[in-house]
Design a protein around this nucleic acid. Structure first.
Lengths: 139, 139
DNA sequence: TACTTCCTGCGAGCCCTTTGCAAGAGAATG
DNA sequence: CATTCTCTTGCAAAGGGCTCGCAGGAAGTA
């Protein structure tokens, strides 16, 4: 799943910790730094949380990983190649749904045309009520 | 600017601190708790930061104030009646632009139709490059 | 193998926010 | 007004999440 060259090509050293962090992010889909650490530790205890933070930052700098803000302050990390969807965050149950980026195409164009604003769709979360909670609230 | 009844009607006591917090939020437009505190203290030093936090929360519970996540973790507060725009947050210069809610109308409808997701437009920030920074980056 | 540089673990520290507690102040009542 | 009940406040401590400095250790290079 991880090719040694991926990291070397970016000028990064290939350390076990770094590989594990990248691997965890890829496996988890969405993950907070804490969750990444937990995942990594499940097979390799003793890896320090600050190492996870530093590696997430490093991997983000070279473009292998990205983060998104889902609202509660904490960033959520994704493998760069997996970030092909929007996040629909339910304000009620906290569930995180996905929607294709294309759903926002018109919106992005509008903002670009009207305000010259170039939206980074991968970086924003959409808040609201998921269908389940909306149904509950409707009752 | 503040009617005594606004607070009383909601079942809240009318304390000087509470009035000041509400007033500050209304005057500031967008404001972090820290900024609200600063504003309040400019006329009334000695008001505790935790009082500001508690009042923001209280005022939000009764619907006089709302908060938005602009991404860096901190919430930003608005008077409820002023939240009639989207936030366009520039990832480069940090500038916060506004756009009318209607810009997102199609987008909101799409999400509703396709996923049953009821977007709370007032609660999400849109990330990207503002026109200035996009121009700079283009050079 | 020897060397340079980058990374890691650890601990301390920082920022923002929340909490517990005791004193103080609103507001309803008599 | 005085009394009383309850909500609020200020203060200080604590919590969560993240960053930083340091010294030892490992990756990559020749």
């Amino acid at each position: 799943m991880i090719k040694p060259n991926e990291l070397r090509e970016k000028g990064l050293r290939l350390t076990p910790q770094r590989e594990l962090v990248l691997q965890a992010v890829r496996q988890l889909g969405h993950a907070t730094p804490e969750e990444v650490a937990e995942k990594v530790r499940s097979t390799h205890p003793g890896i320090n949380l600050s190492t996870v933070y530093r590696n997430l930052e490093t991997l983000e700098n070279v473009g292998l990983v990205l983060h998104t803000h889902l609202g509660h302050g904490g960033a959520t990390y994704h493998a760069a190649e997996e970030l092909t969807h929007l996040h629909l965050v339910c304000s009620d149950c906290g569930d995180i749904g996905d929607a294709p980026i294309e759903s926002a195409a018109n919106f992005v164009n509008t903002l670009s045309d009207d305000y010259g604003f170039k939206t980074d769709v991968t970086h924003f979360a959409v808040y609201g009520l998921c269908s389940k909670c909306a149904a509950k609230a409707g009752k």
